[in-house]
Write a protein that binds this DNA or RNA. Sequence first.
DNA 1: TTGAAAGCGATACCAG
DNA 2: CTGGTATCGCTTTCAA
Lengths: 372, 372
Amino acid sequence: MGRKVTLFDLADALGVSTGTVHRALHGHRDVNLQTKTRVLRLAKSMGYRPNLAARYLSLKRNYRISVNTLKGTTSFWDEVRSGIEKEANLIGLDNVELEFRTYPRLGEGEPEAFEEALRAKVDGIISFPSHPKSFRACMRRAFRARIPVVCVATDAPDTDRLGVVSIDTMASGGLAADLIGQVIDGKGKVATTLSDLQITEHAEKCHAFESTLRSFYPAMQLVAKIEDHDIETEAYDKCRELFRAHSDLAGIYITTEASIPVFEAARDAGMLQQLTIVTTDIFPSLVQQIRAGSVLATIYQRPHTQGRMAFRVLHEFLVHGSCPSPQVTLAPHVITRGSLDFFLLRKAIESTPEKGAQIQLDSHELEGFAIE
Amino acid sequence: MGRKVTLFDLADALGVSTGTVHRALHGHRDVNLQTKTRVLRLAKSMGYRPNLAARYLSLKRNYRISVNTLKGTTSFWDEVRSGIEKEANLIGLDNVELEFRTYPRLGEGEPEAFEEALRAKVDGIISFPSHPKSFRACMRRAFRARIPVVCVATDAPDTDRLGVVSIDTMASGGLAADLIGQVIDGKGKVATTLSDLQITEHAEKCHAFESTLRSFYPAMQLVAKIEDHDIETEAYDKCRELFRAHSDLAGIYITTEASIPVFEAARDAGMLQQLTIVTTDIFPSLVQQIRAGSVLATIYQRPHTQGRMAFRVLHEFLVHGSCPSPQVTLAPHVITRGSLDFFLLRKAIESTPEKGAQIQLDSHELEGFAIE
DNA sequence: TTGAAAGCGATACCAG
DNA sequence: CTGGTATCGCTTTCAA
């Protein structure tokens, strides 16, 4: 394994200066096309790889990243943000500054936050595209400004986003179908609730749920896909209606966090016992339902990890200039009553704030690796 | 937000040289105790944080890490190794060299590999402690040599390992119990298989399984914990015996990869249909069983992620001199028939080799972020 | 015990 | 269009 090739090695071999080599590699204007190709060819043949440490050091400018997300009613978005922060000061050689811009509700204040980030000339944006339509316009501007954008939680189709980090919706739907299907022995009526069929993410979960039923549980019947448009009363009312129309309903898959109104409707209809329920994500009032045994399982969408991954993708691009995997799709976690405590414990650990500034020590000084 | 504090700032403020400050911070011998404490105090009060880029750059020496793992019969250990490699060239600023030392079987060749790594004076070791007893002796030597060791997949109790990365055994057992319990409607006989009750990891899974049954499925009965000692014929024979003794067995939780002999025994006993089975991990012949519908779910132990995390913990220690979380416990993934394909897809992506040396480009040159 | 100074490799500026 | 060179912050000799 030969020693590492440096800029100087290239310059030396070609009889030019490192400045020239540098400009050639980075495609700056004002480089002779010939020397440029010579440099590029040699770099490839010698297997040149830039030394990132040296790069960071000489680059005084810090990367500034804007994190545009929803305020949210549960801790989901807090966890996304804390995941981003954690990854930032783990990876970060202190060369990243995060700027958080949060908007209160779906589609409300999102374009403004985006616009602000663009005006602030950040180097990259991590964003939750809450309103597909207005987001597309934002993306066009980001594209023109050459600011890379990573979407988190939901994809923004037909935009030139650099990457997406989201949960595997197909796996989620498939899991939900299998869990319910197995427990109710492959027969009976089931339903799903979602926010809106227009939202790709939700549509995909339902689709996977339905297609798994078709493939493996032909005797089951999906009788409704309830759209609640993120409005609690709408969810409640439509569920009441559903339970009235199908008093023999056996199971329900709630693809969003909006499970509480469903429980209330089921309880009020006196059907809570008979229903096999799979929910999404986790928060205190849902924990109660799980402990009470009303929930078969909840499908956890790992917001903390989504945040971490989103940061990684963007950082990778800013630093390496390349994007290893424009689509990061996370496997969902299945949480049941018997495993609940272990998941809650992990969640608590994840949200522990980073230990602050910490003087680094040589191992000589650590007394037998003792960790405080 | 004040600008970052450098070594020079500290030296300047104290009227000493950067060399002195450096030596004081690192506890090198031959530093006046007084100046040392003055430096340390000032460093803390000024919130000094070393610039890692500068450190990497000036440190010419690369870290050498030995990865001591099992050859294995399934792809489990291949995935662990590829996870380590992936994280290494993602995080690594090329300052890490990996040396793989693999041993053929449980406890066979393990001490030799360890010894070799110590002799080679590596900077750290990632190891699977396959044989608790001999491993402890190895660890003592590593400790004396001041070489940090991170355990992967299994912990090594009562040793001074730097950290462990493993799957959450409690969550695994709890999940298995809930899955089986719900499907068989909370009543009937169940059993588990494991390699050896001496192995903490297996014992914990069984314990969590049992305790979840006790808490939430009192009408279920755990009739056997079968130890197969990693021998296929032993697993087969003991299962046949089990099935003979309990022809009304309703479910079985296989805590290890050794599920194939169990399927064979069940099939030969004509009980495959009646059993609700939860397995562990995934490999081609198990995939067949899942597709065939013989498996309720398999609990995937995420070897790739285990590898990635193990590397992170060790790297973190070598670089920062601190260990953020000595115990990384991963949440297991639940894979069912309806979600199988999505998990297999992910697995295929994970094991895609890294794109090799790649010239980095400025964003100017990327035509609209187009990723090849 | 401490100070001074020479790198590490890439970047960016200023001359030519 | 290209060469030379100061610079980033830390580590590590070599002298004092």
